[in-house]
Computed example of a mutant assay.
Amino acid sequence: MLTTERKALIQRVLRRDGRLIAKAFSQQLGVSEDTIRRDLRELAGEGLLQRVHGGALPASPAVADFASREAAGSSAKATLGGIAARLIQQGQIVFLDGGTTNVQLARQLPYDLKATIITHSPSIAVELARHPLVDVEMIGGRIFKHSIVTVGSTSAEAILRVRADAYFMGVTGLHPETGATTGDGEEAAIKRLIAHQSAETIVLATREKLGAASPYSIMPLTEIATLVTEAGLAAELLQPFQSASINIVEG
């Protein structure tokens, strides 16, 4: 089997099974494990999978720039944003993460909602500035341009002074083995800190992020209270999240 054929097969197996074990796959094809590991390294270098101990997981597709991500899947993101917006209750203190789906959430908050929204996303803050009753607190720091959120020590110090009722978190991947992940280590640390300062964490994730993984871990599935995702997904795709006692809200 040619290298290109092996690599194409690897990607098909990842799409079908949600993971690949290098040793078992090499035995199945009758090639050395080193050959498969080399294929995995090269595919990972192209952003086509996420390597883990012993094999690989599907890579998250959420690696494009903010403008491109905002245009992609806008209908599904708007639906999830509308559902999540209705989960916020009167008088709550809520931390709203950055990301294109959370922008949709901010746009669809009920006009009679009186709450305090804390965010480290300038994009979210601008959307909320139009809301008549929501108080907005902006966390400062260095802008991480991929997600348009603030990160760094200045952000962390401000977050530590906050206690929120709920945190609506964006992720690039949500996998049973790796939990919630994202593509930048510093951003992952800030997300983890916000979750620690919040009574519950709610994740908004479109279909392509479920069963996918990114390089940096945020938290295991067991620390997520609620998952807001698309309606009509296969039961086997949602089963690992249900097994982790996550409340699943489908839109």
Rank of each mutant, 00 (worst) to 15 (best):
T154R: 05
L221E: 07
A62P: 03
A106R: 03
A195E: 12
L43V: 00
A158I: 01
E186R: 11
F25C: 08
L160P: 00
P61D: 12
T206P: 09
A234S: 11
L29T: 11
E42Q: 09
Q197M: 15
A195S: 15
G81L: 09
P176F: 11
I190F: 15
A115L: 04
R86N: 07
F25L: 15
L174E: 04
G152E: 02
E187M: 09
A115Q: 08
K209A: 12
M138Y: 10
A225I: 00
I88Q: 11
R16G: 03
L113N: 06
A213E: 05
I10H: 02
G99Y: 04
I139S: 11
R142W: 09
G170P: 06
D17W: 10
A67M: 15
A129I: 00
I93Q: 14
Q28S: 14
R16P: 01
T154P: 00
A195C: 11
L238F: 11
N247W: 01
Y111W: 12
R16C: 07
S74L: 12
P176I: 10
S60W: 15
L43G: 01
T222P: 01
Q28M: 06
G170N: 13
L48T: 00
S68K: 15
D135C: 02
S217Y: 02
P58R: 14
E157P: 00
